[in-house]
């Protein structure tokens, strides 16, 4: 790991058929930080983070060039174990998507299929993950109830607990609060900040104020290119690019 980055993209180009979505991205993501990726619709934010754990592999006609390094190792190398990669780089989506199973089973699912724990230690993983996702106190007496009986905000934290249960190194969050009310949003935002102690957190958001609140570093993408990337405080106080300035101050379009 020569670069010192947890994840680094080098001249990353991603397209779908003839459409080029990411046009040569060089981005270094620091470990134990929250990095926000923002930009207008269609700029390539979601494509970028879906490239970081190879979710785009399942999209027909998707082609990836350049490199994505995780701890210095190219995740698109043919020798890469993709299942293991997705354990190391977990993902939470815009809409909460718990399995139609119990709360307990949702969190236990990953450790079970990865053969990580049995019996008592599985209980421990479930408890630890729900605590880390700031959900334990609300569900500890109803672990056998269906996950779908939880509120939207609780479901989203359950999805985060599910991602944490397999002990990932990186958590990708794609618009994790856009389907949530302000109170639930606030909880997830606090959670994102507390997670960076143990994980590297990357969040895609349309909500610039959310990026400003939770992230240490902010990347601004526009038309598949990295327009600006730097410390969040600087990007929001004194952006170096006019395009960033116009976007974050709402002068766009």
């Amino acid at each position: 790991m020569s670069s010192g980055y947890k994840i680094e993209t080098r001249n990353l180009q991603v397209g779908f058929g003839k459409l080029m979505v990411l046009k040569g991205l060089n981005l270094g993501i620091r470990a134990n930080c929250v990095t926000a990726v923002m930009g207008p619709s269609g700029c390539g934010k979601s494509t970028l983070i879906r490239t970081l754990n190879r979710l785009n592999d399942m999209v027909p006609e998707c082609h990836v060039e350049g490199q994505v390094l995780l701890d210095g190792e190219d995740i698109y190398d043919p020798s890469m174990d993709v299942v293991e990669l997705r354990r190391r780089v977990g993902m939470v989506f815009q809409k909460p998507n718990p399995f139609p199973k119990s709360i307990y089973e949702n969190v236990a699912f990953g450790p079970k299929i990865h053969g990580m724990a049995r019996g008592d230690s599985l209980d421990e993983i479930v408890e630890r993950s729900l605590k880390a996702a700031a959900l334990w106190d609300e569900v500890k007496d109803r672990l056998d109830e269906p996950a779908l009986s939880l509120s939207g905000g609780q479901q989203q934290r359950l999805c985060i607990a599910r991602a944490l249960a397999v002990q990932p190194e990186v958590i990708l969050l794609d618009e994790p609060c856009s389907a949530l009310d302000p109170a639930a949003t606030s909880k997830i935002e606090s959670l994102m900040v507390s997670l960076k102690k143990d994980y590297t957190v990357i969040v895609v958001t349309h909500n610039m104020q959310q990026a400003a609140r939770v992230s240490d570093y902010t990347a601004f993408l526009y038309l598949g290119e990295l327009v600006e990337y730097g410390e969040t405080r600087r990007v929001f106080e004194n952006p170096s690019s006019k395009l960033t300035e116009d976007f974050i101050t709402g002068r766009f379009g």
């Binding site: 610039m208 104020q209 400003a212 929001f236 106080e237 004194n238 960033t244 300035e245 974050i248 101050t249």
Partner: peptide, 9 residues
Amino acid sequence: YQPVANDLR
């Protein structure tokens, strides 16, 4: 309005 950048400055 939670102003940022030039607006905030």
